[in-house]
């Protein structure tokens, strides 16, 4: 029996979900929410310090990139300096 059209494992298909940081639970652990309000706990160790309001790319429970900081500048802008 295999996967069919009804299921799409975003982890297995390598997709990430943009999520906003709602609250910091502990060093490296933040409560994040998707645009539609679905919340889950995310490991943020790979991004150093994250601030509530930041938009992160999350995959399999881990934040892989900072998409947008609360003031609207992305990590990519900063890296370009």
């Amino acid at each position: 029996m295999s996967c069919s059209g009804e299921r799409h494992c975003i982890t297995c298909s390598d997709e990430g979900v943009p999520m906003r940081v709602v609250d910091i639970h502990a060093p490296g652990l933040a409560l994040c929410a998707t645009e539609e309000g679905v919340k889950s706990e995310v490991m943020t160790d790979l991004l150093g310090l994250v601030e509530p309001g930041s938009m992160l790319l999350v995959h399999a429970g881990t934040a892989l990139q900072l998409i947008e900081s609360p003031r609207g500048r992305s990590a990519l802008d900063r890296a370009a300096r």
Partner: peptide, 14 residues
Amino acid sequence: HPTVLGACEILGID
């Protein structure tokens, strides 16, 4: 509902 859509996306279900 947008929230149902969002949950479905994370749970990986259509």
